[in-house]
Design a protein around this nucleic acid. Sequence first.
DNA 1: ACATTGAGCGAACACTTGTAAGCTGAAAGT
DNA 2: ACTTTCAGCTTACAAGTGTTCGCTCAATGT
Lengths: 219, 219
Amino acid sequence: MAGVRARQKEKTRRALIDAALNQLSAEISFSSLSLREVAREAQIAPTSFYRHFQNMEELGLTLVDEGGLALRQLLRQSRQRIDSGGSIIRVSLETFIYFVTHHSSVFRLLLQERSGTSREFRDAVAREIDHFKSELADYLMAERKMPRRLAELQSDAIVRVVFSAGADALDLEDDAKLRLMEQTIVQVRMVARGAQTFMGDDQILPASVHIPAKPDHSS
Amino acid sequence: MAGVRARQKEKTRRALIDAALNQLSAEISFSSLSLREVAREAQIAPTSFYRHFQNMEELGLTLVDEGGLALRQLLRQSRQRIDSGGSIIRVSLETFIYFVTHHSSVFRLLLQERSGTSREFRDAVAREIDHFKSELADYLMAERKMPRRLAELQSDAIVRVVFSAGADALDLEDDAKLRLMEQTIVQVRMVARGAQTFMGDDQILPASVHIPAKPDHSS
DNA sequence: ACATTGAGCGAACACTTGTAAGCTGAAAGT
DNA sequence: ACTTTCAGCTTACAAGTGTTCGCTCAATGT
């Protein structure tokens, strides 16, 4: 196994994925991408595309999955490096800004498809974002001894603020980007301090916090 | 003046705007809208479109402006109704949810074009959002006696959280939407309380907070 | 050695798209 | 009364789109 044939297939599959990623830019969104152009850049005939994906949507979902996974791994790594001192908020945000800057096409994709026209896309992105939330909430519960509901509420707010700031960062020069990051760090601290003030009163929290659009079956 | 001719022109201009708004939905974004279809729904020949707008982008910018204005007016109204008791946070969020629910096409437009492929669109939406931020910051400075920088930081965070929640609300049933709103209210309170804890220390704030992508020349 | 599989191809189909050119006819200006 | 203006029209074109069909031919299975 790992036959010549299977290896070649995987190769052109990647070529398609890379071609799509390559064409994505500030001016070209995924939905404005055409099957033919992607195939052209991947150096295959338009019709051969169907040997790898049923349609463009399937390719897009692959990109979302890969992109979300990449960001999550990056964040997980930097969180592990924390133990050797340093603010977790600052390090996480630096990592995040790094991702936004150096994988901007992927981040733009997540951002756009989050409120795009395909329900499947939206759910896929929501799932990725849910992962971030959960991992952050787990951290808060373990590290800061927070009750689950409060931790989830807080991490939800933080993820919203950070992603929104990331969206703005896409259009900024390096120095403005850094200033935005500093601002965001303070805002995250604001949320954190605000959450602390709720540590006593359980009843002020709404009954249910987690509203999944669809059950999640991934790892 | 107010001649027959000008009145008729204004009428079909509105027909075009309404046709575009009408076609926008969860499945159809503005960028996937075609000039021909819009013209068809407005009952004019495709080429006549150009008598009113230079291209689709110009139509879109009109929609963004009108939509942003509508939301701002709604929020301003509800803020005035506050004096007669009631939490400003709750009332504003109820108003916001109302807008998201009953003008979902417009809100979706703002949301999508915020990180869309046209720089002009992005700037236009950023301008609208800046208005919200400023009006909220003004309120916080006047009502809560906050220093400008802290008020801006706080309102920026709040607008980010609320808009992000609004995006999620688009896909939810009525009851889930209400629960999300309650959750968001708590999160906004978290931000507000957190901001309060910064009331003393001025130096912890980053030097510059406001990073305009482009100067704003609107009212 | 021989049969099967399947990635990749070229040609073709049926559409849709934006937009240019030039005409018509009623409203507006003089 | 005569001219100018201009919103809206018809016709036309060139360029792109996704997708079907049936072929080739090297890698694979037996």
